[in-house]
């Protein structure tokens, strides 16, 4: 039996013309999404969690938001914050330079460089950053003078360790060589993730190794290592709080010093957390900018035309080309 679109049997008394009109009317009805219980439950749960967060954060007197507000931009906190930023920037710059050099050594064809870099990475990875900072700060006890000369023989230049090592320089040196070891392995991974063909194509085109790295291979390495490197840099920036053990006053040490006197522990830790959040957000914005810049050509398919249709539709030169016809004709015989 013939059925209408909504599944009811077509009555024979109904004329054919009105059936088509009914089909058109039904087809004109707007379409709405199905009511979903799941979605409503998720909204309710989200609202519940949101209210709890609101209560905990803003209606809990113990946070003392007025105290937080009064310290957030206070001179002492800002100077601690600036110290943290300065330490992070210097450590990142030196750490990445060390990492690049060590990775280059690790991939060198000179056995001495390979061994040196392996030893470096081995020792630095084994050492907790806290121990590293303390060792460098107290290096004067181990090596009273930094000297340039012949081992066991005369030295030409002596610099007392205590002149070089301050709380600040110990912090920068300690964190840089720590970051250097970790970033070296990330750099190496990035280089090894390149296919051999890319380096060969550069060679075949006559690009010098330096130019090949600057123009072609480097940008691909940066793209590959950005997420891992952003992790390391954000870790190092929070690790700057470790330098409180050698008495350098960065953000966390500053707030600790303040609440040691005023006993406003929670509000001051909140101040520190807010600034760490701000700095991490900045780092993540930087990361996504880097990823977007160096991701060009990788993740986008302009207009996202499926490959099969693209081949047939836009392959203009194939059909009118007499050579292909010649080849095809020859293939057939």
């Amino acid at each position: 039996m013939a059925l209408t679109t909504n599944g009811r049997p077509m009555t024979l008394t109904e004329p054919v013309g009105s059936t088509t009109r009914r089909h058109q009317d039904l087809a004109a009805l707007p379409i709405r999404p199905r009511p979903s219980l799941k979605r409503w439950i998720s909204y309710v749960l989200a609202a519940y969690v949101g209210l709890i967060a609101l209560e905990m954060l803003f209606f809990n007197q113990n946070w003392q938001w007025d105290v937080v507000g009064s310290y957030l931009f206070s001179q002492i906190v800002i100077s601690g914050l600036l110290n943290t930023i300065q330490l992070t920037v210097l450590t990142t710059v030196f750490g990445l330079i060390i990492g690049g050099v060590i990775a280059w050594c690790r991939l060198s064809n000179l056995a001495v460089l390979r061994t040196f870099s392996l030893l470096y990475i081995w020792v630095m990875r084994a050492m907790p950053p806290l121990v590293m900072l303390l060792l460098i700060y107290f290096v004067g006890a181990l090596v009273p003078n930094f000297s340039i000369g012949i081992p066991f023989g005369p030295s030409f230049l002596d610099i007392p360790a205590n002149q070089v090592i301050s709380q600040f320089s110990a912090a920068v040196i300690g964190l840089s060589i720590y970051l250097g070891a970790y970033s070296a392995e990330i750099f190496r991974g990035g280089v090894q993730s390149l296919t051999a063909g890319q380096a060969e194509a550069c060679k075949a085109l006559g690009l010098s190794p330096t130019k090949a790295y600057v123009k072609v291979l480097g940008p691909q390495v940066v793209r590959n290592i950005t997420p891992a490197m952003a992790n390391e840099v954000i870790t190092i920036f929070k690790n700057t709080s470790l330098v409180s053990v050698i008495g350098y006053t960065e953000l966390l040490t500053t707030v600790q010093n303040v609440y040691a006197v005023s006993f406003e522990t929670i509000p001051l830790l909140t101040v520190a957390v807010i600034w760490y959040l701000v700095l991490t957000s900045l780092a993540m914005v930087g990361q996504s900018l880097l990823e977007r810049h160096f991701g060009k050509g990788f993740n986008r398919r302009k207009g996202s035309v499926p490959r099969s249709t693209q081949v047939e539709g836009s392959e203009g030169p194939v059909a009118p080309n007499p050579l292909t016809d010649v080849l095809a004709a020859k293939d057939e015989k």
């Binding site: 063909g197 060969e200 194509a201 075949a204 072609v216 050509g297």
Partner: peptide, 11 residues
């Protein structure tokens, strides 16, 4: 040189 796998620079 023209390679089997093209080796175009993807970036």
């Amino acid at each position: 040189m023209v390679f089997q796998n093209f080796n175009l620079f993807p970036n």
